[in-house]
Design a protein around this nucleic acid. Sequence first.
DNA 1: ATAAAACACGCATAATCACGCACTTTACTT
DNA 2: AAGTAAAGTGCGTGATTATGCGTGTTTTAT
Lengths: 248, 248
Amino acid sequence: MLKKERHDFIMRQINLHNRVLTSDLVQLLNVSEDTIRRDLQELVDDGLLFKVHGGALSKSYHSSFDDSTVYARDSKIIIAKKAISLIKDGMVVLIGGGTTIIEFVKQLPQNIAATFFTISPLVAVELAKYNNVEVILIGGLFSKNSQITYGGHVISQLAEIKADLCLMGTSAIHHEEGLTDTDWEINQLKKAMIACSKKTAVLCISEKLDITLRLKVCPIESISYLVTELEKGHGLLEGYRQKRAEIL
Amino acid sequence: MLKKERHDFIMRQINLHNRVLTSDLVQLLNVSEDTIRRDLQELVDDGLLFKVHGGALSKSYHSSFDDSTVYARDSKIIIAKKAISLIKDGMVVLIGGGTTIIEFVKQLPQNIAATFFTISPLVAVELAKYNNVEVILIGGLFSKNSQITYGGHVISQLAEIKADLCLMGTSAIHHEEGLTDTDWEINQLKKAMIACSKKTAVLCISEKLDITLRLKVCPIESISYLVTELEKGHGLLEGYRQKRAEIL
DNA sequence: ATAAAACACGCATAATCACGCACTTTACTT
DNA sequence: AAGTAAAGTGCGTGATTATGCGTGTTTTAT
């Protein structure tokens, strides 16, 4: 069989099943592994597919998300790195949505081993890239604005969960008023999330500190960890340092 | 034998088999390799075929190969446009995952008004862009491979739904064997999806026609609509036309 | 931590190719 | 009819390409 014919065959398989295994191709085409690897490499060079350990994936299936346009991305990465230390192997983690959280998920070490419950499809997709992670997506009505599931169905499912840790972003946090928000549904949701977790960590960039919005989610005492991009001793954190929450 | 005769012979072989090997032609025509190479080169110069190491391929074969990703996308867009007619305002639609389905969702008219249940986070995110659409994401274990939710929890939730229409892609469809798949969980899932919908539409590119995989999802009789990029009267659809399914 | 699988790299080999040259055939001129 | 230019063909030689194997490394799974 000619090389081009093999390439064609491989691309057909890719378009059909979105992925191919090197070992399968070796059998189907009756050539050595090296030849298949070389074929795959050439197709990669032509930009026709995406190579991974064990085979190759369709290009269209895996090129969907844009990294660059996230606001205050650097700060969020700093926050993410700090927050990683909160996750221990085997933990059951309940995790929210929002850009800060997504950045956190992207920064997780590749070998992380834990169970994640999430209400955010985007977080679920990111988490799925980790082999030792089990992802449970909590279903329900899907919010167009915040890209998370919400509503009674979500809350009743949350009630059945007992998580070791809850990670969430926030619109506002204040050292006296605690966590607040503007949206009634999200408010309810966050309450439920906090209620079903032993500990709660809030990840937020410093510009959301000392802001109060209309609806109260919980007092500052309900928060176990506060993670910002600031140094532990930064002045802005003074008011929070006196509370129970640990500051990272 | 004259040069012209050899050229004709070569072109006949090309049209017959889509390919020729230099070595075969040497034997068949009883001339030296050089002569064959020169012949092939002249045919290439005339734009009649495409030369590769070891022989030559038909021009059409090559063109259907090099832009295969674009080709597949075009097909999927054609499929999407056809399938849109199945959605009526106010319908409750159950929709699966996969690239064909995602392309379908992207093609929906902006003013579409319906309720969508889905097991695919990516589909949910796309659907959320339509103002008059209500999206319910069915939660459960999240599959790393297929980027959909699956497992018992999903299936039990599906059992509570009664949808007007179910839209799904497929890995394989055969006019005798019906819908088949390779993955046990996805198999179960699809069965459940079909069971809870009044009608089922299968969206698939023609390359997936007449393929049978290991696990049976349902007989062809369970499918209400078959949507491919082919014309209604295309020969490949003959076997399906005799079944109950309506072909779009 | 460990073993198995998948991988990358260099090398050897065989097939395929390109090019120059010589020889033959063809076709055209005188 | 003979001469001649042009085209066609085959062969030798060295270059290029394709492939498989061995070895050691990386990745993955347990």
